[in-house]
Measured scan of single mutants.
Amino acid sequence: AEKTGIVNVSSSLNAREGASTSSKVIGSLSGNTKVTIVGEEGAFYKIEYKGSHGYVAKEYIKDIKDE
């Protein structure tokens, strides 16, 4: 099942092309942005936001229960 997560940073969080800190940054998400978690790979979540996919470090995403 898809989960919703909240970007848990004070400034912004980089979204990357792949599940690695050396992957190209494809965008950034500001704190408290809601994202859909579609998968996980190592220390990263694969997320969907406004129709695009990217990878973000798990430690900066807070899971919330689907309402």
Rank of each mutant, 00 (worst) to 15 (best):
35 V>Y: 04
61 I>L: 06
30 S>H: 10
54 G>P: 01
8 N>W: 11
6 I>H: 05
45 Y>E: 01
18 G>N: 10
58 K>A: 03
49 Y>C: 07
22 S>V: 08
64 I>P: 06
67 E>W: 12
54 G>H: 05
18 G>P: 02
14 N>E: 15
42 G>W: 02
18 G>C: 14
47 I>D: 00
36 T>K: 13
46 K>N: 01
49 Y>P: 00
51 G>S: 07
16 R>P: 02
20 S>E: 06
31 G>E: 08
56 V>S: 00
21 T>V: 12
44 F>V: 02
62 K>F: 09
58 K>Q: 04
59 E>R: 13
22 S>P: 03
36 T>P: 01
33 T>V: 09
60 Y>C: 14
11 S>K: 12
36 T>Y: 13
21 T>F: 15
48 E>T: 11
65 K>W: 10
11 S>I: 11
18 G>Y: 14
42 G>I: 01
49 Y>R: 00
36 T>V: 14
27 G>S: 04
45 Y>M: 02
8 N>F: 10
18 G>R: 13
39 G>W: 03
14 N>S: 12
64 I>N: 05
59 E>S: 08
16 R>D: 01
43 A>F: 07
54 G>F: 12
62 K>V: 13
37 I>Q: 00
5 G>L: 04
24 K>W: 05
42 G>Y: 04
51 G>A: 05
50 K>M: 13
44 F>K: 01
25 V>S: 06
28 S>G: 05
64 I>G: 05
44 F>R: 01
29 L>E: 00
61 I>V: 07
19 A>I: 07
50 K>I: 05
37 I>F: 02
25 V>R: 05
55 Y>H: 00
3 K>M: 10
61 I>M: 03
53 H>P: 04
26 I>L: 10
35 V>E: 00
54 G>V: 14
50 K>H: 09
42 G>N: 06
55 Y>A: 00
28 S>F: 12
32 N>E: 07
25 V>M: 05
46 K>L: 10
37 I>E: 00
31 G>N: 15
56 V>N: 00
26 I>D: 01
38 V>H: 04
65 K>L: 11
2 E>S: 15
45 Y>L: 04
15 A>E: 01
36 T>I: 13
18 G>K: 13
26 I>F: 04
21 T>Q: 10
54 G>W: 13
61 I>G: 01
49 Y>A: 00
7 V>R: 02
46 K>W: 06
5 G>Y: 06
60 Y>P: 01
51 G>R: 04
41 E>S: 09
47 I>V: 05
28 S>C: 14
62 K>Q: 09
27 G>P: 02
11 S>A: 09
53 H>S: 06
14 N>G: 07
65 K>D: 09
31 G>V: 10
43 A>G: 11
37 I>L: 03
39 G>S: 06
1 A>E: 09
44 F>N: 01
9 V>F: 07
17 E>H: 06
65 K>C: 11
27 G>K: 04
34 K>N: 04
9 V>Y: 07
16 R>C: 08
55 Y>L: 02
65 K>S: 13
66 D>N: 11
34 K>H: 08
51 G>C: 08
40 E>G: 02
51 G>F: 05
11 S>F: 10
2 E>P: 15
31 G>D: 10
49 Y>I: 07
20 S>F: 08
20 S>N: 10
34 K>D: 02
26 I>G: 00
11 S>N: 11
27 G>E: 03
60 Y>Q: 05
25 V>I: 13
15 A>K: 02
55 Y>W: 12
53 H>E: 06
54 G>Y: 13
44 F>C: 06
32 N>P: 04
18 G>H: 14
67 E>T: 13
41 E>D: 09
19 A>E: 03
12 S>Q: 10
43 A>E: 14
53 H>A: 06
35 V>D: 00
67 E>Q: 11
7 V>C: 06
13 L>D: 01
20 S>G: 05
30 S>R: 14
35 V>M: 02
23 S>E: 03
53 H>I: 14
6 I>A: 03
56 V>A: 01
38 V>L: 12
64 I>Y: 08
60 Y>M: 07
50 K>G: 11
56 V>D: 00
22 S>I: 08
13 L>S: 02
38 V>M: 07
45 Y>F: 08
26 I>V: 07
40 E>N: 04
5 G>C: 09
33 T>L: 06
38 V>Y: 06
23 S>C: 10
25 V>G: 03
62 K>P: 02
17 E>K: 07
65 K>N: 10
64 I>K: 03
56 V>I: 08
12 S>A: 09
45 Y>R: 03
64 I>V: 12
37 I>R: 00
46 K>P: 01
67 E>D: 11
39 G>T: 02
21 T>L: 14
30 S>P: 15
14 N>W: 13
17 E>C: 13
59 E>M: 12
3 K>R: 14
9 V>P: 07
40 E>M: 07
62 K>A: 10
49 Y>S: 01
29 L>F: 05
48 E>G: 02
28 S>V: 14
49 Y>H: 02
23 S>K: 03
55 Y>I: 01
4 T>V: 11
66 D>C: 14
16 R>Q: 07
37 I>M: 01
36 T>F: 12
8 N>V: 12
24 K>F: 05
8 N>A: 13
41 E>G: 02
52 S>C: 13
25 V>N: 04
35 V>W: 04
30 S>L: 14
15 A>R: 03
47 I>N: 02
27 G>L: 12
33 T>I: 06
2 E>V: 15
38 V>S: 02
62 K>T: 14
18 G>M: 11
50 K>S: 07
63 D>A: 10
24 K>G: 06
23 S>V: 03
59 E>W: 08
25 V>D: 02
33 T>G: 04
19 A>P: 15
52 S>E: 07
29 L>W: 04
59 E>G: 06
22 S>R: 09
5 G>H: 03
7 V>L: 06
2 E>M: 15
38 V>E: 03
20 S>L: 06
47 I>K: 01
1 A>K: 13
53 H>F: 15
5 G>I: 06
65 K>A: 10
31 G>L: 09
8 N>C: 15
57 A>T: 04
45 Y>A: 02
1 A>P: 12
6 I>T: 08
63 D>C: 15
67 E>Y: 12
48 E>D: 06
40 E>K: 03
25 V>T: 06
10 S>A: 12
50 K>V: 05
33 T>F: 07
6 I>P: 02
42 G>P: 00
29 L>H: 01
41 E>C: 14
13 L>P: 06
35 V>A: 01
11 S>M: 10
58 K>G: 01
36 T>A: 07
47 I>G: 01
3 K>C: 14
10 S>G: 10
25 V>E: 04
21 T>A: 13
16 R>W: 15
58 K>F: 04
67 E>H: 12
51 G>E: 06
59 E>Y: 08
9 V>E: 05
35 V>C: 05
53 H>C: 10
55 Y>G: 00
28 S>H: 10
2 E>I: 15
50 K>A: 11
33 T>D: 08
39 G>L: 02
19 A>W: 05
48 E>V: 14
15 A>F: 15
8 N>L: 09
1 A>D: 08
49 Y>K: 00
29 L>A: 01
53 H>D: 03
42 G>F: 03
16 R>N: 07
29 L>G: 00
43 A>T: 08
52 S>D: 06
